[in-house]
């Protein structure tokens, strides 16, 4: 049985926390440059130009691209033939978050309790999801998720009769309501099917799909992705909500089998910062 020391997971999380915040991915910046070509609103163009300048400024000054350096969201895919040694997995992940946020001079945005609301001053704990998968691999994915966009995420238990039009309308309305608050151009993660919590988790996982805008391998799902993207970009919300053609850069939909009487739909909204990475150990 393969052994993996959780210390390596701590190091990986620390490294990714700093990296995603300081270095927006080149692919994302390319996608923003392409969006600039499509944008017709002068103010919208001005905003996208500054968003691109900001990504450069962050690299040059070694500053976080955005001051909301997010909730640390970690997806850990652990092969069932792996033996994790050297300590507790969740503690190891949280230690990586603490070190990364402190050493990277990132913002501490987590309160330890939703009612008492006192800052933990470490940005830990992370939101951790673990998945047991076949094989001997360990894959750790990290996302710095801003609250501006996370707060605009929505979930609804649709009826099967609501169908495609019901899905499109729900997402369109959520995007209009989110407006500039989610820092568009957005990326939308959509979870369809399963039950309440599975739909929500699928929506978040959909945001990790790389490269940005890669279609779902199932043709009918990819079709739905294209329709959602077209619908959302017809809203006119535009860059930072001030009007324009480019409201979303990409839509990723993930689906799961579902009960005959259910159609759970979760929408996880991500902003133009779209900060995530993965490593395999």
């Amino acid at each position: 049985m393969r052994e993996v020391n959780v210390q390596d997971i701590t190091d990986a999380v620390r490294e990714m926390a700093i990296d995603v915040n300081l270095h927006l991915s080149e692919g994302l910046v390319d996608d923003l440059a392409k969006a600039l070509e499509r944008e017709e609103s002068p103010l919208g163009r001005e905003i996208i130009e500054r968003i691109i300048d900001n990504a450069r400024a962050a690299r040059d000054k070694q500053l976080p691209a955005c001051q909301d350096t997010g909730t640390a969201v970690v997806m850990a895919e652990i092969g069932q033939d792996v033996h994790l040694v050297g300590g507790d997995l969740t503690e190891a992940i949280n230690e990586g978050v603490e070190r990364g946020y402190k050493e990277g001079r990132l913002r501490m945005s987590i309160v330890g309790d939703p009612i008492r609301r006192v800052n933990t001053n470490t940005n830990a704990p992370a939101v951790v999801h673990t998945f047991i998968v076949p094989g001997e691999g360990v894959k750790i994915s990290f996302m710095a998720k801003g609250s501006g966009c996370e707060n605009m995420s929505r979930l609804k238990m649709l009826n099967p009769a609501d169908g495609e039009e019901g899905i499109l309308r729900f997402i369109e309305e959520a995007v209009i309501e989110a407006d500039g608050r989610a820092c568009p151009p957005m990326t939308l993660g959509v979870g369809l099917g399963g039950d309440l919590e599975q739909a929500a988790l699928l929506a978040k996982r959909a945001l990790f799909r790389a490269p940005l805008g890669a279609p779902n391998p199932a043709g009918h799902v990819a079709d739905l992705e294209r329709k959602i993207l077209a619908r959302v970009n017809a809203t006119g919300v535009g860059p930072m909500g001030m009007g324009g053609r480019v409201t979303a850069l990409a839509v990723h939909v993930e689906v799961a089998p579902v009960h005959i009487s259910s159609l759970p739909l979760a929408l996880n909204v991500d902003c133009h910062a779209h900060r995530h990475r993965s490593v395999e150990l």
């Binding site: 968003i51 900001n54 400024a57 955005c66 001051q67 500039g180």
Partner: peptide, 13 residues
């Protein structure tokens, strides 16, 4: 007045 969201590194200057 609206500042550009997510442009924190630029605005820092």
């Amino acid at each position: 007045l609206a500042a550009i969201g997510g442009a924190g590194a630029l605005l820092s200057g």
